[in-house]
């Protein structure tokens, strides 16, 4: 499907599985499974699949992923509604504290007007809500040229530039 990755619209071959109904549907290919499923079927998944990804929502502690972090090629953080801001903190922790360097994807209620902040917190890919125009959303990355504070991007506190 079409997603935004590294500020470009790309076709992506990961499949997001919100809820695993049968083990077969996640036993091969590139699938993003719920954390709980991963935790129960970790050893099998590590054997059957080459690439690994999970998704979590704001209720899950990022700390619950630490032992497995090196196994993941992608972590997706879910925004059940764009107003639920917990995953902004979780993204920064994964990037800045726990050193996760692979793909960090925002899924769920993802809209243009949050992209700038999401990017600053360390997300590099975005599954935009289906009804939204991805071309239009790309403009959001240029909303601001000045960033007052440091986050998970390359910004330093602006006063250090003064």
């Amino acid at each position: 499907m079409r997603i935004i990755k590294d500020r470009q619209i790309v076709y992506d071959d990961w499949t997001l599985v919100r809820e695993v109904v049968t083990d077969d549907e996640v036993s091969s290919g590139k699938v993003i499974v719920p954390l709980a499923y991963w935790q129960q079927h970790r050893d099998v998944l590590l054997k059957t699949n080459e690439k690994h990804a999970i998704w979590i929502d704001g209720d899950n502690e990022t700390e619950a992923l630490l032992d497995d972090l090196s196994n993941f090629d992608l972590i997706a953080l879910d925004f059940p509604t764009f107003k639920d801001g917990r995953s902004y903190s979780h993204a920064r922790l994964l990037r800045q504290r726990y050193g996760f360097e692979k793909e960090l994807r925002a899924i769920g209620d993802i809209l243009r007007d949050q992209l700038f902040y999401l990017m600053r917190c360390g997300f590099n890919s975005f599954e935009l809500r289906q009804d939204k125009d991805a071309e239009d959303a790309l403009k959001a990355f240029n909303d601001f040229t000045v960033r007052y504070q440091a986050a998970a991007d390359d910004a330093v506190p602006v006063y250090k530039l003064r």
Partner: peptide, 14 residues
Amino acid sequence: RQWSTFHPEFSYLP
């Protein structure tokens, strides 16, 4: 004020 303006992590607080 400057630190909190458009703080990316804290713009959708509870």
